[in-house]
Design a protein around this nucleic acid. Structure first.
Lengths: 200, 200, 200, 200
DNA sequence: CATGAATGAGCTTTCATTCAT
DNA sequence: AATGAATGAAAGCTCATTCAT
C-alpha cells in the first residue's frame, strides 16, 4: 500500500515535471533529460516508471485533459443560470495567459498528433469533452428558454469549441495581437449574437 | 545576373522541397537530409543557400503564407457581391483535407514555432493577412448594406479568423470528428447568424 | 534444511527459466529481465540466488550438459550390441530440430566461450563427456569384434564428436541445407565407412 | 574517381578494423566504439560509411568468406594430384590457431547471427563454398581413379565440411584438448578411411 | 557552386547492479 | 527471502554543422 502510494506519488510528480518542462521550453524539444533534471531524478528513473517517453507524455496529456475539463465541469456545476454557465465555460476554457503550461501542453500535443492512433484518440478525447460542456450548457439554456439559437445546438457547440481552441492556441503561442480579454469578449459577443445570450 | 537567377531558382526549389517534405512527414521530424534528398542535393548544399535549417523554414513559411493569402485575395478580387466574397473567403481559407501540405506547414509552424522573435513575427504576419481579408469583405458588406453585424467589424473578423484557424487545424491534424464540409457549414452558419449573410 | 530445499528448488526453477528463454530468443540477447519475467520473479531476486548473470549461465550450462549426456548414457545403457549403441549415440547426439532449446544453449554457449577460464572449462567438460560416450561404444565394439576401425579409437571418437558438433550446430543455427535426417545418415555412413558398422 | 577510391579504401580499412576487433574481443561484445577506436575514427564516421553496425558486420563477413575461400581455391588451383589437393584443402580450411581472427569472425558469426534472412543467407553462402571445394576435389579424385569412396560424393563432402567446421570451432574457441595438428591428422585419417586417400 | 568526409553533441533506450527495507 | 526504487554506464543512432577541395 505504501508502495503503491509512493508509485502514484512519483508518477504524479513526473507528470508535473513534464508539464512544467513543456510549459517552459515547448513540447518539440522535450527530452527525458529535461524532465529528469526538473524532477531531480535520472533518466533511468523515469523509464522505471514509464515504459517510454511517449508513455509519460500520454499520461501527462490525459492528466491535463482531465484537470482542464474537470475543473471546468466543477465550475459550472455550481451555477444554475445557463447564461452564467456559458460565461463561465468561456472564461475557464481559455488559457490564463501565454505561460499557461497546462494549456500549452494540450494544444501543442494536439498539433503533434496524427503520428499514431493513440495520439489521434487523445486529441479526439479532448475535443469530445469540450463539445460535451458546451452541448450541456446550450441544451439547458434552450430548454429553459433563455437561449434561442440561430443554428442547431451541435453546430453551435462546435463553433464555440473552435473559437476556444483558436484563441487558446493564439494566446499560448504568444500572438501579441490577441489578448485574453479580447478573446473572451469576442467569444461572448459571438455566443450572444448567435442566440446564446440574454434574450430580449 | 545569371548567378542571381540561379540562386533564386535553387532557393525556390528548396522551398518547394521543404513544403512537400513537411506535407508528407510533418514538421516535427523534418531534417536537412529529408529536404536534401527530395531536392536532389546534399545537406551541405542546402546550408550553402541557407544559413540554417531554421532559415529555410522561415522562408518556406513566408512563401506559404504568401501563396495561401494571395490566392485567396485573387479569388475574391473577381467577385462583387460581399456575400459571395465571404462564402469564397471561407471556402478558400480551409484546407482541402488532411493532406493539404501547405496548410499543414502553416499550422504546424504556428504551433511548434520556437519562441524566437522572428517566429512570432511570422505567425502574426499570417494572422494579420487573414484579418485583412475578412475585414475587407465585411467592410464592403456593411457599406453596401447587405451585412448588418451584431458586433464591431474588427471583432467579427477576429472571430472568423479564429474559426478558420481552429477548423483548419483540426482538419489538418486528422481529427475524424470534423469534416471539411461540416467546418464550412458551421462557419457559414456562424457568419450568417452574426449578421454577415443574406439579409432579410 | 527446509531453507536449503527451497533454495535448491528455486535454483532449479531459475535454470529452467534460463533454458527456456535462451531456447526462445537466443543467448546473445539474454537479459536478467527476460529470465526474471519467465520465472515470475524480479531481477533482484535472481541476483539473490546467483552472484551474477554469468553464474546463472554457468549453472545452466552445467545442468544442460548433464541432462544431455545423462540421457544419452541411459539410452545406451539398455542396449547390448555396440552397433545399435552407436546408432543410438548418433541419434541422441543430434538436436531434434532448429528449436531444440537445450542443444541451442549448449552450442551457443560453446561459441561464446573463451571469455574466461570458467567458460573454457565448461566447454571442455562437455567435449570430454561426448568423447567418453563414443570411446566406450567403440571400445566395446572393437573388443567384441563387430568393429574393425581404420584408425585409433581415440581419433575415431574425436571425429565422431566433431561430426556431431558440426551437424548439431548447423541444425540449431537453422541452416536449411542440412536436415536432421541427412545429418544422421551422413554420420552413420561415416561411422560405417571407418569400420564402425556391420562387419562383413 | 579519387573519391570512389577513397571510399573503397576507407571501407576496407573499416572492415580490417572490425576483423581485428572481433579477433581480439569477440563478436558478442563488438561495439561501434571499439571499431571506431581501432580505425582512428569516430562512431559517426563509421555510420557515414555504413548504414548500420549490422551492415558493417555483414560486409566484413562477406569479405572474410571471400578471403578464406578464395585463398583456398588459389592454393588448390596450383596442384594437380587430387590427393595433394585434398590434403591442402584440409590444411587451409582450419584456423592457424586460437588467434586466427578471420576464422573466429566467421564461426562466431555463424552461431551468433541474428535469425534474419540476410544472416541465414550468409551462413549458407559460406557452407556452400566449403562444399564446392571438397566436391570439386573429390570429383576429380574419383574421376582419375585415385579415390574410391565408401559413400556418395555429396555425403562425403558434407562430412568433410562438418569435420572442418567442428575442428575449426573448437580451435578458435580455445579448446585445449584439440590442437591444430591433431585436427588435421584426424581429418586426413577420416578422408583416407572413407576412400579419399592413397589407394592401395 | 557543391560535394564528400568527418565530427560531436545529443537523443532514447537497455541493462546489470546496488541498496534500503 | 525478495522487492521496489534508482542509478549510471554504455549502446546504437540521428543530425546539424564544419571544412577542405
Amino acid at each position: 500500500m505504501a508502495r503503491t502510494k509512493n508509485q502514484a506519488h512519483r508518477r504524479e510528480a513526473l507528470i508535473s515535471a513534464t508539464l512544467e518542462t513543456v510549459g517552459e521550453s515547448g513540447l518539440r524539444s522535450l527530452s527525458l533529460a529535461d524532465v529528469a533534471r526538473r524532477a531531480g531524478l535520472t533518466r533511468g528513473a523515469i523509464l522505471y516508471y514509464y515504459e517510454d517517453l511517449d508513455a509519460l507524455l500520454v499520461e501527462t496529456h490525459r492528466a491535463g485533459v482531465q484537470r482542464f475539463c474537470d475543473s471546468r465541469d466543477d465550475a459550472i456545476a455550481g451555477i444554475s443560470d445557463p447564461r452564467d454557465q456559458l460565461a463561465t465555460a468561456i472564461d475557464e476554457g481559455l488559457p490564463s495567459g501565454p505561460d499557461d503550461a497546462l494549456m500549452r501542453l494540450l494544444y501543442e500535443f494536439d498539433v503533434l498528433a496524427g503520428t499514431s492512433a493513440a495520439h489521434d484518440e487523445m486529441v479526439e478525447g479532448m475535443f469530445t469533452r469540450q463539445m460535451e460542456i458546451y452541448r450541456r450548457v446550450l441544451t439547458a439554456g434552450v430548454a429553459s428558454g433563455v437561449f434561442s439559437l440561430t443554428m442547431p445546438i451541435e453546430q453551435m457547440a462546435m463553433n464555440l469549441v473552435a473559437l476556444e481552441d483558436a484563441y487558446g492556441l493564439h494566446i499560448v503561442a504568444g500572438n501579441s495581437l490577441i489578448t485574453v480579454e479580447a478573446a473572451k469578449a469576442a467569444m461572448r459577443a459571438a455566443a450572444e449574437g448567435l442566440g446564446a445570450g440574454p434574450t430580449g
